[in-house]
Design a protein around this nucleic acid. Structure first.
Lengths: 133, 133
DNA sequence: GTCCCTGCAAAAGTTTTGCATTGCG
DNA sequence: CGCAATGCAAAACTTTTGCAGGGAC
């Protein structure tokens, strides 16, 4: 069954399509600069600012996720919008996906303890990947 | 009963002591720049590089924690070394402490699923603080 | 024609390093 | 004296913005 492609609520340009495709096809949580380099391999004329603004636009509209999961300071992007967590190898910096799904009771407990209206959470495990352990 | 003050495994200078005290007395997870400003209120001659290097040194030796929990890009520091999590208000940026303690089974499950040797995790909840909700 | 988008460049914010000087041991 | 620590300044890196030109509608 074919998935109906819903129109995105902003103008789709070749540049934005290329950025979205690059993020969706990546499996390594690339930074903005890395995405820029990959997109430029296909659209050599594109500028970094265009890639950067496209990433922010896609994040705002929920098409991709922005993560602060690396050991470096740069933000990383994830084309997998479904709820999931991450794990980072503290030796080589690799970032993997994890599906844990904290039980909803956890958020309720935090809400009760802090008085916050809890919307969600970011969870990143730390460890050594099979190659580094 | 007095707690025996163990000597730190690196040279303690007045500057480093002031930085450590500033972080330990802070309850708002300040950035390096904010810590610099607070320390300078006491030691007006200190330079930012000294504060910055002291923070890195203290992090390396486990005296304080470095967090990537803010909505801005700057790292934040926490004088509370005991295991705990955080919650950030997505409206005003406030950062609070949370004590949830994921059950150990979670880490074991992640280790089994990913093949990583899991050392720990970073968990930050998102929501609206009582003042912003 | 109007408005949004792009590309280039520069500015801003944060982190990191080079180096001469200082000062403790 | 010897070496680590400091303070200043500059470099490096990432993020963000200004602006002129160009294309879509």
């Amino acid at each position: 069954m074919a998935v109906t492609a819903e129109p995105l609520p902003f103008r789709q340009t070749p540049q934005r399509t290329a950025v979205l495709e690059a993020v969706r096809h990546a499996d390594d949580h690339p930074t903005a600069l890395e995405i820029y380099r990959r997109v430029r391999a296909v659209r050599s004329g594109i500028g970094f600012a265009t890639v950067y603004r496209a990433l922010n636009l896609l994040v705002e509209h929920g098409e991709i996720l922005e993560l602060q999961v690396g050991e470096d300071t740069a933000a990383r992007y994830d084309g997998n919008v479904a709820s999931h967590d991450h794990i980072r190898c503290t030796a080589c910096g690799a970032i993997g996906d994890v599906h844990l799904d904290l039980e909803p009771a956890a958020s309720r407990r935090v809400a009760a303890a802090t008085g916050y209206a809890v919307d969600g959470y970011e969870l990143t495990f730390l460890g050594r990947c099979p190659g580094c352990a």
